[in-house]
Design a protein around this nucleic acid. Sequence first.
DNA 1: AATTTCACG
DNA 2: ACGTACGTGAAATTA
Length: 397
Amino acid sequence: MPVLAAMEQEGITLDPAALYELSAELAKDISTVEAEIQGHAGKKFNVSSPKQVGEVLFEELKIVDKPAKTKTGQYSTSEDVLSKLENKHPIVRRILDYRELVKLKNTYVDVLPELIHSRTGRIHTTFNQVVAVTGRLSSDNPNLQNIPIRTARGREIRKAFVPRGDDYVLFSADYSQIELRIIAELSKDAGMLEAFRTGHDIHAATAAKVYGVPIGDVTSDQRRNAKMVNFGIIYGISAFGLSQRVNIPRSEAKEIIENYFVQFPGIKSYMDNTINSARDLGYVETLVGRKRNLRDINSKNAVVRGFAERNAINAPIQGSAADMIKIAMINIHARLGKMKVGTKMLLQVHDELLFDVPKTELEEMTAVIKEEMERAMPLKVPVIAEAGHGDNWLEAH
DNA sequence: AATTTCACG
DNA sequence: ACGTACGTGAAATTA
């Protein structure tokens, strides 16, 4: 609590001028794209209305025979649906473009500058410690754990988060593949332990095993698929889920998963054991023994039970990573206090910590922060934190 | 107030 | 036959 309170009160500096400029650019692009969409549709309509978008795409343009529906019977126009229909009509790509731009403008660019505190001149979030069921933190009012980074326009927003002054840099340190390292720890799977101990690219190493090729011969497609499988493992994999994400037939996804479990038998048995234990006890535990109750683990409804089973797999993984970074935060905060330095912890984003660091302390802090993150909760495999710094949050990565 | 969508890890 | 990858928060629309 004291660590989070200090971070909340410290806040983070925003460059509002950069966002005002971006807002004007986005406004211009949004009206261009909106006009183009309405041109394709042959009429004006509210492009922000999923209902109206669905009617235009599936009743007027009829771009597909059997449109997907939401659980309330509306046409689904979500990103995963539309991205698969991009080749049906040029309007589809433009709707996705419109959505991206409007999201960024309305959720971040036009809102964050208004939240600069009148006295501190900085942005102050709230970190919630008892919201996420896995033990993660959450951040709200504003949420600073979901600042964009994946698209070009999104990265412009991240650039507006800057150091507290000219003599400072933003310093970021993030855990490398922490959830997969924790699976290696929990499962003790020999192949996964070995992959991390050799320091190989974990997704390439997974692909090499699953596809039966030398690691040097792994293609980018094979690596991408293996990466999706590794994510699937963390989430409690299903053939359906993998087939959706990789866009392959479910039968193919099933084969990949079966082969994965042949290559990593320790993962398979860990998952079976975890679910069986949860059925007996009614809960699962993280590495330091924090529990998540799973009241539906013995449900007779297969769908409900399936959710609980995936929770049983995921919660110890996500939760142990959350425990680890919290321990690191406590130790770092204590150490910074003792050292009487100007470095301040600003934000936590699940596997990343962000700091304001005086340029004079940069070398020292790189060593201290990395060390504390890596030693917070030792595992059977190396725990690696990667650090960077820059004149804004994007460059710090 | 509920639904839909989408931003992040 | 069913409905499905884990965890969040926020905005706009719809009911």
